[in-house]
Amino acid sequence: MPIGPYQSPLAFISDAELDSHHAAQPVEYQASPQPAGLRLRGVEKRFGDNQVLRGIDLDVPAGQFVAIVGKSGCGKSTLLRLLVGLDDPTGGRIEFVDEAGEAVEPNSRIVFQEPRLLPWFSVADNVAVGLGDGVPKAFGRREAERALAGVQLSDKVKDWPSKLSGGQRQRVALARALVSRPGLLALDEPLGALDALTRLGMQDLVTDVWRELGFTAVLVTHDVGEAVHLADRVIVLDEGRISLDLEIPRDRPRRYGEPALAEIEGKLLDTILGKA
């Protein structure tokens, strides 16, 4: 995993290159779907007596990179699970809209803190899982290899997941989420279990694929620095409510340790820790 200076925006392997590799029949390529923006109105979630989300109103334009930060138990992971349909809200509405505000199918995907790869499938087969059932094998393999090239794992296509390092497994999980070209990608502390340097490399990779594919990204993290480095906008959740909604007006690529970013980070931490 290359670390440090910003990598050139990554290029997904071209069709021609893949064809020369496999001499397979050209396959109809899935058009990149529209990014899906979010429109949340009074979203609530309670588990028994425990009200986790207390009326969230939020508009995320299609294609934006939003980070949600907050203390443990503030409801950020719960909110993310609602966005991708893993749970249903107990109140309020969640709508998915395109740039013009028309309702769209979100085709949402989620990456968890654990890679959740199937240990009995090869790396390529794990990525092909992301295409869903009933996909022709050759097509699945091609798409998987393309997505793996996108996360710089072309040489691991045939390996078992157990052979990979933690960071590589998480990249496979990312490729699996991206292979179907989602309109909305939810990231639930995807880098939380990685060591510090691997994490920096992964942050650049996530930025690259987001810029390349243009999906709407919602990142939940407890690392405020990571949120500031990656996102267009950071939202602080506190006891089930939005307590701060902050734009990060910085161009990319962003360098680590930029004074302007450090200032924003400090302000966010003050809010989260209640010193503001």
Partner: peptide, 11 residues
Amino acid sequence: DLIEMGQIYGM
């Protein structure tokens, strides 16, 4: 977790 993953991906 793997079963949940499978369900998310439409299995």
